[in-house]
């Protein structure tokens, strides 16, 4: 179990940072409104929000429940500020714990996951910053049609390698959610846009299956 006092302190610092971050986030639109004296009509913000908030608030809440157990305390407080969880922070933390042979929710797992998320956040921020500053030079390269297929396929490239490790280790557990998702996406391709919603669906199916197999002593 994680050392109480260190973990308590992580919660304390984490809360301090995350609430400050929330203030910093809100400071951005406020500063724009004040500086340009351009407060948008409340109704237009509300209308814009209505188009995205129902889905993104739900996905956000689900992501908190699904990913915090994998990321640990420090990793969670940081990853939910720096973002890009499914395509970067969660695979990065899980991969780092796998390499170090440690499990989430242990002292070592907490350290490794936080280091992975923090490093990944720093590198991402730096790459975006350098990229933004060198945009003139980089735009033609990044937008070149030759490279396009590489970035179009970044998720299959990531989840193929990550998937084979976890599926081969937990074959019995993985079969049902995998089959369900493949059949679902082949039948209803338009769901690809709402994959965020389907992550918890996959998690619930996977947990129910795990429970069943565990009770029957199959795993």
């Amino acid at each position: 179990m994680i050392n109480k006092s260190y973990d308590e302190k992580t919660h304390y610092y984490g809360k301090l940072w995350i609430w400050t971050a929330a203030i910093v986030f809100v400071f951005v639109p406020i500063s724009i409104c004040v500086y340009y004296n351009a407060w948008p009509p409340f109704t237009s913000v509300l209308k814009g929000l209505l188009g995205v908030a129902p889905i993104f608030w739900t996905v956000g809440a689900i992501e908190v429940i699904t990913f915090t157990p994998m990321l640990g305390t420090g990793g969670s407080y940081l990853a939910f500020v720096t973002g890009n969880l499914t395509n970067l922070k969660v695979p990065c933390a899980i991969n780092a714990m796998e390499i170090n042979n440690v499990k989430p929710d242990t002292e070592e797992g907490e350290v490794v996951s936080t280091i992975a998320v923090a490093t990944s956040s720093i590198v991402t921020t730096l790459i975006i910053a350098i990229g933004t500053l060198l945009l003139g030079t980089l735009t033609p390269i990044l937008n070149s049609p030759v490279l396009k297929p590489a970035f179009d396929n970044i998720l299959p490239a990531l989840f193929g390698a990550l998937g084979v490790v976890y599926i081969s280790k937990n074959l019995k557990l993985a079969v049902t959610p995998m089959l369900f998702m493949v059949v679902l996406f082949v039948t209803v391709p338009s769901l690809a846009g709402s994959v965020g919603i389907l992550v918890p669906v996959g998690a619930v199916i996977s947990i129910l299956m795990a429970r069943l197999l565990y009770k029957k002593n199959i795993i």
Binding site: V186, P189, A210
Partner: peptide
């Protein structure tokens, strides 16, 4: 097992998505 199952759920959603254009 619970944490592993959650992670497998996430992987399966993304791997399933890869199949969305096969038709």
């Amino acid at each position: 097992l619970l944490i592993t199952a959650m992670f497998l759920g996430m992987i399966s959603a993304f791997m399933g998505m890869v199949f969305s254009n096969i038709r």
